[in-house]
Design a protein around this nucleic acid. Structure first.
Lengths: 212, 212
DNA sequence: GTCTATAATTTGATAGAC
DNA sequence: GTCTATCAAATTATAGAC
């Protein structure tokens, strides 16, 4: 059965080649610049060959999206080691911003191109599956908020809503910066710190003061 | 000179017809659905005729963008009558969200389609001209923040940075909702209120408590 | 599995007649 | 000013040969 296995292997390899080529194109020229022809040229196959592995251009993009989100999750997870949930939220937000600044085209692909892409990772359907990267990322944030409430550090808001608000606010900062790069304002990190600091203070129960 | 005037009038009218048709198309099918041919069909002219009034499709879109931003400014300005700056910021944010929800395609056009569109209204170049709608909107917010700091209600942050952060946070909420409409979370108004409330608390000097 | 060839569209923009 | 005709290009996707 070695022959069948080799065929499997080759098929998987080609699939990976397609994705790698697509990734490179998206990273260099954005999602708009991604076409089946360009992928085919890059891997030196005919365009028709791609359709043996992916049903459509969109399906390729969705796969890249998923990968990119896993990468974002990786950035965020680096904050998981921080025991203090307060510091952890800070770190999550910072790593989120860092992902956006370091991998702008990945960020764009997930959140700023097609509605169906955001939906595929963060939509209602995805959030039902606990294994989906979107669910894991959101859950990570939600649990951190919950811990803060449990300890009386945050006032008793709905942790789900609070997590959503935090996510949205940081997303706003990142996406606005990506859309409008020559902003006359301070560097994004200073703004991100101000945003985090403000949100932390805003959610805090009032007993302890927010750290700078 | 009656003839020349009539010609002027007719020219202006046609220009307006083009924009109206384009507006309708964008509102119904988004910016992606906007093409010179569709505009031409709608006004019953040939595609070539459009180029007598606009240099390109992009120029038409930029004009629509400007209009849309003026409409957003109108929404925000309704909050201008509120004397108390604290309540005013709330009202600005709420009207901003309302604009996004009531005119999603306008919001998309300005902030979520082409980088050059955001740039044309909120980019560094636009922000140098005090008459630009983007400048006026941002200035309105900045001045309100400044008033709050002057009264000691907000802690002494950089008003420019604070205004930017507030804008970005609300933008994040709106844009995320537009990209991901079937969100399982509460209605956007509740989230917007939570966001505003949290930001207000976060910026407050700590003396007075935030209002619900 | 892979290719060649091509269908079927759509696009923005222009040349030149009237 | 306006139209017809068209260019030049790009796209996704498929049919059919090998």
């Amino acid at each position: 059965m070695g022959i069948a296995e080799r065929k499997e292997r080759q098929k998987a390899e080609l699939r990976e080649q397609i994705l790698t080529a697509a990734r490179t194109i998206v990273l260099e020229r954005g999602y708009r610049g991604l076409s089946m022809r360009k992928i085919a040229d890059a891997i030196e196959y005919s365009p028709a060959a791609l359709y043996l592995h992916f049903a459509s251009r969109e399906e390729i993009a969705l796969q890249l999206c998923r990968e990119a989100f896993l990468e974002l999750l990786g950035y965020m997870a680096s904050a998981g080691a921080i025991a203090d949930p307060y510091q952890r939220i800070f770190a999550i937000a910072r790593s989120y911003v860092r992902f956006g600044m370091e991998k702008p085209e990945s960020y764009r692909l997930i959140f700023m191109e097609e509605q169906s892409f955001v939906d595929s990772v963060m939509g209602p359907k995805a959030l039902e599956d606990p294994d989906e990267p979107g669910t894991r990322a959101f859950e990570f944030l939600r649990a951190t908020v919950e811990a803060l409430i449990a300890r009386g550090i945050f006032r008793p808001v709905d942790p789900e809503a609070a997590a959503h608000v935090i996510w949205a606010a940081v997303h706003g900062l990142v996406s606005l910066r990506l859309s409008c790069p020559g902003s006359p304002f301070e560097d994004i990190d200073a703004l991100a710190d101000l945003l985090c600091d403000t949100l932390m203070r805003g959610f805090s129960s009032g007993a302890g003061d927010a750290a700078g």
